[in-house]
Amino acid sequence: MNSQFASVADLDEKRTTFVRLSEHCWGYTAEGDPNTGVIITDESVLIVDTLATPVMAGRLIAEIRRLTDKPIKYVVLSHYHAVRVLGAAAYRGQGLQEIIASQGTYELIVERGAQDMQSEYERFPRLFQAFESIPGLTWPTLVFRESLTLWMGGLEVCVMHPGAGHTRGDTVVWVPSERVLFSGDLVECDAACYTGDAQLADWPATLAVIRALGADKLLPGRGPALTSPGEVARGLDYTSDFVGTLFACAREAVAAGMNLEQAMAHTRRAMDPKFAHVFIYEHCLPFDVVRAVDEASGISHPRIWTAERDKEMWHALQAKG
């Protein structure tokens, strides 16, 4: 195991790709770093997740401007994590009208947004290039509970909270006429699921809701765009397996009275053979195990991660390997 804290030593830049998914839908991916969705119509543009800083978002805006000069009217936050939301300021000069989030996401920003901002930056500074360009927390201007529908010209865009999973405020964006789904971190592919703020018991039912949509193409939170029904099924199965194996191990550890170090070793025996090779696995697993053990012990609302708690946990668990 890596004794250096989290991903502070990960300095390798990732190659970004701007890939077309359908007539109006695009995916901006970066070799396992957080993905961003883009919907471009003759009337306007919508962004699903903003990238982590305004400077980083500016690079995506440059890609979009090669294709259209239409205003970027909408930003949708798939959840509250800093790496997904703190680049929003870059879109304010591009015609931005609404920053959209679920009620659960708004409540999590209020409760723990400031702590998460510092925590995530100190865990993985490469993901926050030009951190100093962030003007502060990103606050939604339009908050919904279950769903809302946008009409971008003649294109119907459904913004939905399908249930809890990665967080309790998770939001997806669905384009029914093109059968394209932007899932945020509810679905991953070839990357570890970060579950430090998860609702693990609820996640499988939320994945079932997503599966029932019948997407032909899906942009996961991390990993490559899934561009066929078979690939979409693979991403859903992969996420279900990761989450289910993790939580099953935690329930077994709690039932057996294991301490946290023992629970980590028990989880590794099941998880490493299947997932040790995927993006950010070593980064995520200590946070994942702590949250899974908490939830299996009856702590339904995730404890707030702070920069101080991060380091205490990491050096107690990860550095012992």
Rank of each mutant, 00 (worst) to 15 (best):
V173G: 05
V173F: 06
W174I: 03
W174S: 00
W174T: 00
V175Q: 00
P176F: 00
P176K: 01
P176A: 00
S177G: 02
S177V: 12
E178K: 04
E178D: 04
R179I: 05
R179T: 07
F182V: 06
F182L: 12
F182I: 06
G184W: 00
D185H: 15
L186A: 08
L186R: 06
V187C: 01
V187P: 01
V187M: 01
E188K: 04
E188F: 04
C189E: 10
C189G: 09
D190I: 13
D190T: 13
A191W: 06
A191N: 08
C193S: 07
Y194L: 15
Y194Q: 11
T195H: 12
T195A: 15
T195R: 09
G196S: 07
D197Y: 15
D197G: 12
A198Q: 10
A198C: 13
Q199M: 06
Q199L: 05
L200F: 11
L200H: 11
D202P: 07
D202G: 14
W203G: 01
W203L: 01
P204S: 11
A205T: 12
A205W: 10
A205F: 11
L207D: 03
L207N: 04
L207I: 06
A208F: 02
A208H: 07
A208Y: 03
V209R: 14
I210V: 08
R211Y: 11
R211F: 08
A212I: 05
L213M: 05
L213R: 02
G214L: 12
A215N: 09
D216N: 10
K217W: 00
L219M: 07
L219C: 04
G223T: 06
G223Y: 05
P224T: 01
P224Q: 01
A225E: 14
A225K: 11
A225H: 10
A225M: 10
L226E: 03
L226S: 03
S228I: 03
P229I: 07
G230D: 14
G230Y: 10
E231N: 03
E231I: 00
E231P: 03
E231S: 07
V232G: 09
V232I: 08
V232T: 08
A233L: 02
A233P: 00
R234M: 09
R234F: 14
G235F: 02
D237F: 13
D237W: 12
Y238L: 05
Y238C: 03
Y238G: 02
Y238I: 06
T239R: 08
S240I: 01
S240G: 15
D241M: 14
F242H: 03
F242N: 01
V243N: 13
V243E: 13
T245K: 15
L246G: 04
L246K: 02
F247K: 12
F247Y: 15
C249E: 12
C249K: 10
A250C: 10
A250F: 07
E252K: 09
A253N: 04
V254W: 08
A255S: 09
A255W: 03
A256S: 08
A256Q: 11
G257K: 05
N259I: 00
N259H: 00
N259L: 02
E261F: 11
E261H: 13
Q262A: 13
Q262S: 11
A263G: 04
A265L: 14
